[in-house]
Computed example of a mutant assay.
Amino acid sequence: MEKLSKIGKYEFLAEPFHCDFSGHLFMGHLGNHLLNAADFHSNERGYGMNYLNTVRKTWVLSRLAVEMDDMPGAYDRFSVETWVDDVMRFFTSRNFRITGQDGHVYGYGKSIWAMIDVETRQPADVLSVRGGLIKDYIEKEYPCPIAQSSRVKMSGEASPVRQTDTCYSDVDVNGHVNSVKYIEHILDLWNLDWYRKHPVRRFEIAYVAESHQGDRLHFYCERRETDVDFNVRIAKEDPDCGETEVCRCRVLFV
């Protein structure tokens, strides 16, 4: 296989119906573009889903942090650069850089991915795939100057704010609720009046357990140290123990 560059760059368009009331790209759609860039990059280099599916493995997103100075507007063309900056036995870390055609940097992202066996849903050894090919594509020098995801801690006082049932359109190719769907559900906890004054500055999410079509999700929210900084917890109903945590999130607004 021909050796490619360690950093991939992929062009996207902020389509108008993927933009919010302000005319800027929804965070959820930006998240989809980041995941697509990761998929393109890994497939081109031989350790993506196209190959993993043949050996009954897949990638699942474990953590994502996105920090944006601003968002592409409707019809803007922008690029997502992505690269792997570290590999462990069961996880790999991948960074993102979002830029405009003029070189303007909109923001950055950091993510952690786990490789799992599709039958057992248990972790799989990343370094066993094609003799550890992914190690040839580690890039540690290209800057991604945002903080790693923090460990979101929630108190027992977090307020229940919403519940929702998961449906057909929530579920992706891996058979569980799509990573970006959680982001969209979380951002829906605030109304338009809030977003007119407070665009999202940073979004962090850590995925704990899978949920599936038919699960009922419960959302809990509490404020952190300032009026524009929040923690959110999502749990699914569990007949055995009441609730099972699905993910935790931090949302920092401007």
Rank of each mutant, 00 (worst) to 15 (best):
residue 221 C to P: 01
residue 192 L to Y: 00
residue 182 Y to C: 08
residue 85 D to T: 06
residue 163 Q to S: 14
residue 87 V to K: 03
residue 100 G to Q: 08
residue 32 N to A: 07
residue 123 P to I: 08
residue 238 D to P: 07
residue 210 E to F: 14
residue 133 L to A: 14
residue 75 Y to W: 15
residue 7 I to S: 11
residue 155 S to D: 12
residue 39 D to A: 11
residue 194 W to R: 04
residue 132 G to W: 10
residue 69 D to A: 15
residue 138 I to G: 05
residue 71 M to S: 12
residue 252 L to F: 10
residue 176 H to S: 11
residue 83 W to C: 05
residue 44 E to D: 14
residue 247 C to R: 05
residue 174 N to Q: 13
residue 50 N to Y: 11
residue 136 D to P: 02
residue 36 N to M: 01
residue 10 Y to Q: 08
residue 25 L to P: 05
residue 66 V to F: 07
residue 18 H to I: 00
residue 219 F to W: 09
residue 153 K to G: 00
residue 143 P to G: 07
residue 166 T to V: 03
residue 116 I to Q: 05
residue 212 H to E: 07
residue 49 M to K: 13
residue 139 E to G: 02
residue 102 D to Y: 01
residue 96 F to K: 13
residue 107 G to C: 13
residue 193 D to L: 00
residue 147 A to D: 13
residue 143 P to H: 07
residue 246 V to F: 04
residue 43 N to L: 12
residue 10 Y to R: 04
residue 108 Y to L: 09
residue 175 G to R: 10
residue 178 N to I: 06
residue 24 H to K: 15
residue 139 E to D: 14
residue 187 L to N: 05
residue 56 R to Y: 09
residue 244 T to P: 13
residue 13 L to C: 01
residue 80 V to D: 11
residue 86 D to M: 11
residue 139 E to K: 03
residue 146 I to P: 05
residue 39 D to M: 06
residue 55 V to S: 10
residue 38 A to D: 12
residue 193 D to R: 07
residue 163 Q to Y: 09
residue 21 F to T: 02
residue 167 C to S: 03
residue 155 S to F: 06
residue 210 E to H: 11
residue 165 D to H: 00
residue 29 H to V: 14
residue 226 T to A: 07
residue 159 S to Y: 05
residue 234 I to T: 02
residue 198 H to G: 03
residue 55 V to K: 09
residue 246 V to E: 10
residue 203 F to C: 01
residue 12 F to M: 02
residue 121 R to V: 01
residue 29 H to E: 15
residue 240 D to R: 06
residue 7 I to V: 15
residue 35 L to C: 08
residue 172 D to L: 08
residue 254 V to R: 12
residue 81 E to A: 08
residue 195 Y to Q: 03
residue 196 R to Y: 13
residue 190 W to K: 06
residue 120 T to L: 04
residue 121 R to I: 00
residue 37 A to R: 04
residue 125 D to W: 02
residue 203 F to L: 15
residue 127 L to R: 09
residue 102 D to T: 10
residue 185 H to W: 00
residue 24 H to M: 14
residue 90 F to D: 02
residue 17 F to A: 03
residue 146 I to K: 03
residue 196 R to D: 12
residue 230 F to K: 09
residue 248 R to T: 08
residue 18 H to V: 04
residue 185 H to N: 02
residue 235 A to L: 07
residue 225 E to L: 10
residue 23 G to H: 12
residue 249 C to S: 14
residue 246 V to H: 09
residue 217 L to Q: 09
residue 132 G to L: 07
residue 73 G to E: 15
residue 65 A to E: 03
residue 39 D to Y: 06
residue 115 M to R: 05
